[in-house]
Design a protein around this nucleic acid. Structure first.
Length: 277
DNA sequence: GCGACAG
DNA sequence: ATCTTGTCGC
């Protein structure tokens, strides 16, 4: 049963203290383990999509929902001016784009590390409202459980909508890799554990540094992604899904698609309106 | 007081 | 995030 928590939506007008209190509520409501009906192994990009399509053929009417691969949606933002954000959502199934939507909303607050959801959550929720399909899982450009209060933007939106979600960050917000993450071979994952900066027992597994791509050559190397559970997904599955979708590039395809669509959709937006002074 | 900090 | 030049490699 689906139980959205609109009451926990990120409100930009709150004081910093109230925002942090809300994040602790989000973390309490979040589920950092697999809790969804589909088979994550059926999440793929186009190249491998045909391989597993044959396996699920003889469907009974009741299982009709699972006769098709899960819908994976990537979410990302771009900025139009200094006070408007454009949020883009690209829904994919078996690696194919089935829907793209976007929404523009005013930015209420500046970027503050740890409070990203209060800056970009509004635009994201507005864009998700525009979607006609129901994503089985959401991939965000930012952290999930790898967060001071275990409530990164992927976790926050996942809980509010009660949809499985994963955080995919390009840099590490907090936590401690259990070993060096420089110049890792492709396919490597290094656990990220809670340290004193995180509101969780030291050593709690928050996510993974995941090396999806790497150069063959000498001194230059690609940094890993920092993948963490958002909501209703465990750390292993979160990394599995991102790895399965990051076939040609460092970032998983739905996130790349959302990234470019967020840029592309700028041309569809009205120029900034002069607010009367 | 200093450092560190997703997008 | 956004800007933007320079460099590496197929």
């Amino acid at each position: 049963m689906s139980t959205p928590r609109s009451d926990l939506a990120p409100e930009p007008g709150l004081s910093r203290e109230e925002m942090e209190r809300l994040q602790r509520e989000i973390a309490d409501a979040a589920v950092f383990e697999d809790d969804f009906p589909f088979d994550p192994a059926t999440i793929t990009n186009p190249l491998e999509a045909s391989a597993n399509a044959a396996a699920s053929d003889l469907e009974t009417p009741e299982a009709a929902d699972r006769s098709q691969p899960p819908i994976v949606a990537g979410v990302d933002q771009s900025f139009l001016d200094d006070d408007r954000a454009l949020s883009a959502v690209v829904a994919t199934r078996a690696g194919e784009v089935i829907e793209r939507v976007h929404a523009v909303t005013p930015l209420e607050i500046p970027y503050v590390p740890g409070l990203l959801a209060f800056r970009e959550g509004g635009p994201i929720l507005a864009a998700l409202e525009e979607l006609s399909v129901s994503p089985d899982i959401l991939l965000f450009d930012g952290s999930g459980r790898i967060h001071f209060r275990q409530a990164g933007i992927a976790t926050h939106i996942g809980v509010v909508r009660d949809v499985p979600s994963v955080g995919v960050a390009k840099s590490l917000l907090c936590g401690e890799p259990v070993e060096d993450t420089e110049n890792l071979p492709a396919g490597t994952r290094v656990p990220i554990e809670a340290d004193s900066s995180v509101d969780a027992p030291d050593g709690t597994l928050l996510g993974y540094a995941l090396q999806t791509r790497q150069y063959d050559s000498p001194d230059r190397y690609i940094n890993p992604l920092y993948v963490s559970p958002g909501h209703r997904v465990g750390p292993e599955t979160a990394a599995d899904v991102v790895e399965a979708l990051a076939t040609s590039y460092k970032l998983p395809e739905p996130v790349r698609l959302a990234d470019s669509y967020a840029e592309e959709a700028k041309s569809l937006v009205e120029p900034e309106t002069d607010h009367e002074n």
